[in-house]
């Protein structure tokens, strides 16, 4: 067993874990943050995307041990005081989900896109940048719409 300490959604957490614990297992099983999903477990689908030190990564393809000292944000860390994050709100408004399984990863990736590419995102950019996120329900159309709307809504007023 090894010790890890990190900040998750602003809270300091420490635990003794088996070194082979994946970040997604640590989040779901140790911290009971089950909003981060496992869709494929083979690094393809993006349902497990979280932010580590401000960057989107696949938590099924990252050891919790390598995140020692890092700051992690999951889907649970986005809403504040009962108000959804603008990207979450945009998915709700634009019907950007059906079953919702891919949605946490979609939203974490979408915010990462905005952080890198700004608030004015064209359809082509959004589709290219969502390369690593698979949705089996929506056909993507409303997801793309949601991301564009969320990106605008995130712009400083």
């Amino acid at each position: 067993m090894i010790s890890v300490s990190m900040t998750v959604n602003g809270k300091a957490v420490s635990a003794k874990i088996d070194p082979r614990t994946l970040l997604v297992q640590f989040l779901r099983e140790n911290l009971l943050l089950t909003g981060t999903h496992v869709g494929c477990d083979t690094s393809q689908c993006g349902a497990c995307v979280v932010h580590v030190d401000g960057k989107a990564i696949k938590s099924c393809t990252t050891l919790a041990a390598t995140c020692d000292g890092a700051s992690v944000v999951t889907i649970e860390g986005l809403a504040h005081d009962g108000a959804l994050h603008p990207m979450q709100e945009a998915f709700r408004e634009n019907h950007g989900l059906q079953c919702g399984f891919c949605t946490p990863g979609m939203i974490m990736s979408a915010i990462d896109i905005v952080n890198r590419k700004g608030h004015d995102l064209d359809e082509h950019t959004i589709r290219e940048e969502l390369e690593g996120n698979i949705c089996r329900c929506t056909g993507y159309h409303n997801i793309v719409k949601s991301v564009a709307a969320g990106a605008h809504a995130m712009a400083p007023k």
Binding site: A56, S109, G132
Partner: peptide
């Protein structure tokens, strides 16, 4: 290479 999350790692 791959997708944005892969490129971040």
């Amino acid at each position: 290479i791959g997708d944005p999350a892969v490129r971040n790692r």
